[in-house]
Design a protein around this nucleic acid. Structure first.
Lengths: 210, 210
DNA sequence: CAGTTCAAGATTGTATACAATCGACCCAGG
DNA sequence: CCTGGGTCGATTGTATACAATCTTGAACTG
């Protein structure tokens, strides 16, 4: 593994694990010590994190972990509502049985997980994430894929599912399965509608809890 | 001006000026000599160009000027049709008189330019670009702004307007003015419809000429 | 005491040296 | 003639040294 990749992974994990909090400044020297590589790859890794929106770079000041305001969240949900629907519509035209199978597996696994007595929220987040990524891939527009990932990635820091009620968790998982089934029956319009509901519900949860 | 900025500007200009063509490999040493800075800022500049989609980085091989296939163009127009309409809708809700004034000025200037005997295609491209950017700003969603810029920037290399007929040039400029006037009369829906036509016309021109 | 100036330390920006990797070319062997 | 392997040059990847810039804080002044 290249030095830049380890530096990137170390910082990224530290942010997701909460060891760096939004607003914290990350000095290059810190990362050098954490990752055990020199400053050159560290700088490159930080720029990569910047282009993904996880940190912001200020000239001569370095990296600061991005701090999300409620306006940022509104912007993101506004765009997601539009783009995820669009992705669903495209998927409706182009999706293959392989994609559908994987999506069904993911949705089913998520549904099982949310029905446990003490659901593993991290696992749910991971399954949820994979489901959406599979859908983007099925849509077959690489740029749309990239855009949606760049929109969603930074919000994973907030760990939305931690604030979901059990009922919201279950509804979310059920909607995934619904989307799969509607796509299987070639009802792109229906799938798109469920997806819109799905994203707007996420926004609702976010507004009321975070 | 910082070294990284000069390196960035030099490569960017070289690409737009056609001194680097799509598919060309750009070695760091070349840029060092062109820009007169060391390799460190050159590398950073190339990564920046990568994140904007102007070049692609291959491990241990370096930067290659991005080569656009017709599939890429379809993807981009597909997304633009959606996102520019969305931007227009948002602008309809939030636009200020200052934005409208600037947009009217830009549209008028463009209309004058296309009516000259020998229109300056580079100036038209510049005015066109500024008009769209002004609209994105008026939409008030910074991420949407960023996304649209990242979609359009790489396509500027192709110099679309070079292939437009006089009639297409004029229609394009007229549509800009129409959009301004519809936004002024608070007819967001109408403005959105014209914008859709506008983007689809651009796709049409592209398909038949490039 | 508040505000300002300036110097020292810390941090980022840049240059350069060294290591690792890739690709082209040459040459031997079939 | 063609193929496989290996060496060498070129290029990217990384480390480190040096320069520029910013922050901090303490001394100084009104």
């Amino acid at each position: 593994m290249k030095a830049v990749d380890t530096a990137y992974a170390v910082v990224r994990e530290s942010i997701f694990a909460g060891r760096f909090s939004p607003g914290d400044r990350i000095t290059e020297q810190e990362v050098v010590e954490l990752a055990g590589v020199s400053r050159t790859p560290v700088r490159e890794a930080l720029r990569r994190l910047q282009s993904q929106g996880l940190v912001e770079m200020q000239p001569n000041l370095g990296a600061v972990v991005t701090n999300w305001s409620s306006e940022d969240a509104e912007e993101i949900f506004e765009l997601r509502a539009m783009l995820e629907c669009f992705a669903t519509r495209l998927a409706g035209e182009r999706i293959t049985v392989e994609h559908l199978e994987r999506m069904r597996k993911l949705a089913t696994a998520q549904l099982e997980e949310v029905r446990r007595k003490t659901p593993d929220l991290d696992r749910i987040a991971e399954l949820n994430n994979q489901f959406h990524q599979e859908l983007y891939a099925a849509a077959g527009n690489r740029r749309l894929n990239r855009i949606l990932i760049s929109l969603i990635e930074p919000t994973l820091v907030i760990r939305t599912f931690q604030h979901y009620s059990d009922e919201a968790l279950r509804r979310s998982a059920r909607q995934h399965l619904e989307i799969v089934e509607l796509l299987e029956s070639a009802d792109a319009e229906g799938a798109e509608a469920v997806m819109r509901t799905h994203v707007l519900a996420a926004r609702h949860e976010f507004r009321h809890n975070a």
